[in-house]
Write a protein that binds this DNA or RNA. Sequence first.
DNA 1: GTTCATTTGTACGTATGTATA
DNA 2: GTATACATACGTACAAATGAA
Lengths: 245, 245
Amino acid sequence: MSGSKKPLYLTVADELKEKIISGVFPIGSLLETEDRLTERFNVSRHTIREALRVLRDEGLIKSRRGSGSKVIPPSTSHHDTYQVMSINDLLMFSEDTTFDIESIELIKIEGNRARILDIPEGEEWLRIGGLRYRKGEKLPLCWSSYFIPREFANVGRLVQRFKGPIFTLIEDFSGQKVTEVKQQISASMIPKDLIEPLLTSRNSAALMVRRTYCTDDDKILQVTLNTHPADRFQHAMTMRRGRKI
Amino acid sequence: MSGSKKPLYLTVADELKEKIISGVFPIGSLLETEDRLTERFNVSRHTIREALRVLRDEGLIKSRRGSGSKVIPPSTSHHDTYQVMSINDLLMFSEDTTFDIESIELIKIEGNRARILDIPEGEEWLRIGGLRYRKGEKLPLCWSSYFIPREFANVGRLVQRFKGPIFTLIEDFSGQKVTEVKQQISASMIPKDLIEPLLTSRNSAALMVRRTYCTDDDKILQVTLNTHPADRFQHAMTMRRGRKI
DNA sequence: GTTCATTTGTACGTATGTATA
DNA sequence: GTATACATACGTACAAATGAA
């Protein structure tokens, strides 16, 4: 009945994830052992291990042979810091913030912009620009520009009412799926035309985050360019390794 | 005999990796099927799949059901761009660059530096500072500061002759292993005292990359702070997903 | 310090599902 | 439609690390 297409191990992973988030398994505590989970879910240990692997990959737990699987904290969580380890975390980003659209227009990609966005010159793309705010804060977190291929420009009309990441709209609209996000981070001086909207000052630095959303066939569904005043945003990530070198 | 502690699937993974790098399986080509690999290596399909999973996690191949596993290119590789997806990639970073040490000294961590590095005030740490160059280039890529807990300060004497990542030195010296690297990226104006050594200009931006190397027990073995002139470095990474949302 | 039960990691086998060509 | 190839899922057994007795 209820969309039973999802693999079993993902169902298990989601249920465990939910229990971790809701505090049934508090941070620092040990998860139930694989054997216990095997009984509780009535699935094979293989399935449990696949589920735990998902949680490990997402940084929710850490497993140690002989000891068990421990629920670990979301790593460094400083003020003005986002933890980005997976595409899923990009969803969080748009959930924790609000987006005020200032402009929607069809533009032709030319020289400098083509270079910055790394997309072909001459094409027409839809650009949606606006300010993104962290919930409850007055100073904008960044200026966001979304670039969308002309063929999907229809989503532009939906964007204003839509809550959540825009690329999911394009996924639904195009029937294609984003499987890869390329992220590029650089520093620059704050662009002149953003000084006023971002309520910042001249001669200050900016952190620029460009994300390119690609399908399996390397077709670009969306390019996002976020310009953050340097004092309002840092980018954090954690890398783990489980083996030798 | 030859350190036969390595799991079988890693042995298989390494061998396949070697063949990919050496061009036996060129980029864009299909890997042998899992069944063929099972025969060739004379191991179970489970072991082959574990090995392929390693290659997938490292971004070397992409598998599609029904089609096969394709060797994929190392993703976006623009000029002035580093691809960082795993701790292993950090090793590459130091292999592609050279490090000219300018100072080694024992310092006491105080207010502002404690905040920037996120380590406790009052402690004594060894600081190694210097310029890092991309091989064959004249302009420095960044100013690098390495901070090392006093108890491992002895590695300071080895650093000058050592080629490779410094944290591996500390691993060998301390007998502990780095399992987690926390990376934080921010923008700022170029610090005054680095304008001259970095051969850059006033009122320019800098990209600051801080990396904290931790053991399994969250002990910090090393903190690195790289300050890049904004026009000489960008940070790139790719996120992939194989499932729904 | 040693022993021993526990717990995850590795590795084998087998069968079926599902997307691709 | 058919053959192919990866994905999911069941089972079993032993190795290696942990932690408590």
